[in-house]
Design a binder for these strands. Sequence first.
DNA 1: ACACTTGTTATACGATCGTCCAACAAGCAA
DNA 2: TTGCTTGTTGGACGATCGTATAACAAGTGT
Lengths: 204, 204
Amino acid sequence: MSSSPAFTRAEPDARRQSLIEACARVLARSGAAGTSVRAIALEAGVSSGLVGHYFAGIDALVAASYTHVEAQVGAALNQALATAAADPRAQLDAYVTASFTPPVASGELLATWIAFWSLVRAQPAIARQHDEQYARFRSRLEALLAACGIAPATLRHTAIAVTALVDGLWLELSLSPGAFSAAEASAIARAQLDALISTSRSAC
Amino acid sequence: MSSSPAFTRAEPDARRQSLIEACARVLARSGAAGTSVRAIALEAGVSSGLVGHYFAGIDALVAASYTHVEAQVGAALNQALATAAADPRAQLDAYVTASFTPPVASGELLATWIAFWSLVRAQPAIARQHDEQYARFRSRLEALLAACGIAPATLRHTAIAVTALVDGLWLELSLSPGAFSAAEASAIARAQLDALISTSRSAC
DNA sequence: ACACTTGTTATACGATCGTCCAACAAGCAA
DNA sequence: TTGCTTGTTGGACGATCGTATAACAAGTGT
């Protein structure tokens, strides 16, 4: 009689990816405090020693998870833009609404993001990663706003304002879901966009 | 010859307060991950065992620090309001500007706040504390906005929007100080207030 | 069938965590 | 001065942390 294999050998890239995804799930479920090498390995269904085989340390794994979650959010926003109508204002609305819809707005993603924020001050590499992510997010928004007729002179400040508004609504929506609903957040953000676009001259 | 005392006995309330303040300092300096009973005791200049004498556990101490930091922020905002001119719009401006000025806007306070956020999901008591804090903040803002002539029907949404805008600006200002300056954040927020107040009818 | 590479496991190690507790001493009352 | 209350200390305890490493086994080429 043949016994089943004690373990299965995985393609290195696939195994690495599964560890990253397991790390993201643990971060979402337990927060930064509960994210340990052993918890991640258990979540991924491997032994704890394997983590050291693929990553220099748990910090490197967390940084890789940061990149992965960023990519997931970016993909969700991209899909929202692709699905929406082509005119600039509809694109902007889709961008904002997607920010308040799962999977972007969710308690799990919030926990992951907070875990990253908690590392920003201590780890320069994480700080640099955040700066780049924020710059990308804002630059993308600037393009959408420019297409809506926002004057170039005020483009930077407008993008900062909208980003802050969306982030603030997203944060509070995720932190205390009882305070207001996702639909309210979306309506509030759209109303602000209306005001910004109409006062900045030129229709959309 | 008389040797100096091995330790000094403190008034219970004073000792308790010094532990809370030491906890807040450690949270600010090292984040939630680096905040241990021993680190707090070292910061306060007492032995680690004393923490258990004043608090049921480190979670209770962190919750007490949350309350303390909340009170500090509230006091800073109160002082800003008291110093500013009495007319409603000046009050609103002072409220917003104070949010982007130390000690409210600072890397230390951000680290403390993130540490609390990271506990919101895991600890219902912390979540309740956050909900109450957010409700107080928003209710106060509603009063200021009402005095500026915002229509009662849109008061709630306007307060949510302004709170989100201020929080988002504050967060990003503290997370990556290089992206924009405190003066810019203040100018952006005031411009948004201008737009909100002018479109909602009635001058201020 | 055999050797070889290497993904994988299991364990050990020192450090640090939160909590607990017996002993000590500071300050006050008698 | 003496005794008592209790704030305070310092260390012990078990659990868990991140990391390192020897032994094992799966898969591949020969």
